[in-house]
Nucleic acid binder design. Structure first.
Lengths: 129, 129
DNA sequence: TGTTTCGTACGAAAACTATCGTACCTTTGG
DNA sequence: CCAAAGGTACGATAGTTTTCGTACGAAACA
């Protein structure tokens, strides 16, 4: 078996799992069919593959589901924010030794971060003080 | 759109690969022996496992090596900054649809980001305008 | 009612990642 | 010269993640 994180931390979702989570976050609780259709807008996936993934996510405790209907409805256990914060935290720790400001610097230096984004960030910060 | 990184993008390093990369970033070009010793300060790893990983990293084009000596010297192909920027970019794209300011908000809201860090970030931003 | 359609369950193959043992070569020192 | 120490190469195994085929039940409908 595996190191099941006892306290608060759910196991890190894998890449494929994240794709599914994002759809559920965006559109709310959904059926496998719906999620699979959305996935197929990006790339071809076979229905039962998606189904299996969502079943695994449920086993892992990342999703729960309403089985009261034939078409099960899947729901993320944790809110989008919480999960993202966890992932972000792990990311900062791993790549930046926990230094958020270091990460920031890269974000600001990154050409892909637009002027508008930078303005947005400044506003944000000023509103905080 | 399945951006297979034919141009500039190297394949995403795996977790174990990242650990090795970080040692090379920190200490500069190194032998397998050196990297393995560093790794073993954190956890037990057998020499040939590290060797294999570094060989794989080389195959993938993430590392290159100087074979002119018996003890090969491994060197990251891309600079630390560049690789991190790539990873960060991917992270922002995947989780925040490319919105750096959204990521920022979470960073600032995260209790693990200390007051000092936040001050640091503010200074940074002000010095930019 | 029977057949087609749409759903879930589940095992197993396929693909990737990580670990390790063994073979074999080179250098070093007695 | 020989053995020990320390290198690389590489195949095999283990572990995980992802994909997919098949079985089978429920609903829809001709």
């Amino acid at each position: 078996m595996k190191s099941n994180q006892s306290e608060n931390n759910l196991p890190e979702p894998t890449k494929a799992e994240l794709e599914i989570l994002q759809i559920l976050w965006e559109f709310g609780p959904s059926t496998v069919r719906f999620v699979n259709d959305k996935l197929n807008e990006q790339k071809e996936v076979i229905y039962t593959s998606t189904l299996k993934q969502m079943q695994i996510l449920t086993e892992k405790g990342i999703l729960k589901r309403d089985e009261s209907q034939m078409k099960h409805i899947y729901i993320p256990v944790e809110a989008e924010e919480k999960t993202k914060v966890q992932l972000l935290d792990r990311f900062v720790t791993t790549l930046y030794k926990g230094s958020a400001s270091q990460l920031m610097m890269q974000l600001l230096g990154n050409e892909k971060t637009s002027k508008a984004e930078i303005e947005e960030i400044k506003k944000l910060l000023n509103s905080m003080k």
